[in-house]
Simulated scan of single mutants.
Amino acid sequence: MMLELSLEGLNVLLLGEPGATRQALARYRREGAVVAHLASPAAFLRAGLPGRVSLVAVVAPSVRPGAGGRVHDGVWQGIVDHYRAAGVPVVREPAAGSRGVVTLVGGGCGAEGLLTRDALDALRDADVVLYDRLGPWESLPALSTAELVDVGKLPGHHKVPQEEINALLVEQARAGANVVRLKGGDPYVFGRGSEELDACTAANVPVRVVSGVSSAIAVPAAAGIPVTQRGVSHCFTVISGHAPLSSAEHAHLAGLGGTLVVLMGVANLPHLAAGLRRAGMANSTPLAVIERGHHVDQRVTLTELGRAERDTAGCGNPAVIVIGDVVRQAPDSGARLVAHATAVDTA
């Protein structure tokens, strides 16, 4: 069961050690609660228990089942029982994330709903979040009380070079922060996540990886395009399109069959399309460009390989390109593929 409760002006008693409660304390204060924080049972007993309490929040790192199936709140149990007997609701908050660690989090393709539970937990427990523009960065103020640092990258322009991002991760962790590096898609799919992991490992900074939903699959799906389909395509190949490919690479891709998914490839699409045609891929091969997938302004352009340069001239990043017969599965795609490419809002 999930209940929504306005905390504005509400008297909240927060129970827990300072290190464990740092993020919960920030969350309650951000929502306007009047928070009394008790760091130890002894301190409470000396000062006396607050009388005007509307909600008790317990941060107990070692919560365990008690007798009769009840949750046991450790050293706080007596205080919790006191307020529960008085009719005060009791909630439990997770302990803050460990200090001095880095978590590489895959944020999906920008839609908050594609964040995994592990990703949400990592953001909630973070002290610092380094984010880029391809993850759900606009939702961060509601998902985390952390310090937010924009290290976003644009095609051809890196606001913060990768080497500086690596150094920032290590620096913040060594300073005692719980650090999240929020990346678009999955950290290990053209995301340079392995470079960031290597930098942390070399500096003896603990690091873990939270996988994310890759735009290579999620964005075509948002346009109604499966990357594989029985009887149509039994495989799919994902490539980075940010740099031009060689003639040998074009020939290899043209001979693979199946579905070709291109990430970061809008700028080089004319070069890619021409190279695939020279390598023998048919002009009639369906092609789709899905811009801003899973966003309210998502746009899908459907065409064929032979008309790709002309029909996709107005497309821009972020976008995913899909080449192959599966593109015909896009809603009502048949008529548009026979006639001419049309930009369609699919949100």
Rank of each mutant, 00 (worst) to 15 (best):
E4Y: 14
E8Q: 15
V12M: 07
L14Y: 13
G19H: 09
G19A: 15
R29I: 10
E31N: 13
G48S: 08
R52I: 05
V53T: 08
S54D: 15
V56G: 02
A60W: 11
S62H: 11
H72D: 15
D73F: 12
I79E: 15
V80Y: 01
V91Y: 05
A96N: 06
R99D: 07
L104C: 00
V105I: 05
G108T: 07
A111T: 03
R117P: 06
D125P: 04
G135Q: 04
W137S: 12
S139Q: 13
S144C: 13
T145N: 03
E147D: 04
L148C: 12
K153L: 08
P155W: 14
E163Q: 11
A167K: 04
L168K: 09
R174C: 04
R181W: 00
G185R: 00
G185W: 01
L197F: 08
L197P: 00
P206M: 12
V207L: 06
V210Q: 01
S211F: 09
S215P: 08
A223F: 09
G231I: 02
F236A: 13
G241F: 10
A254M: 02
G265M: 01
G275Q: 06
N283C: 11
G293V: 04
V300S: 14
L305E: 01
A308G: 03
R310V: 12
D311I: 09
D311H: 11
T312Q: 01
G316D: 10
G316S: 15
A319I: 00
V326A: 14
P331F: 12
L337A: 13
A339H: 12
H340R: 15
A343C: 07
T346V: 09
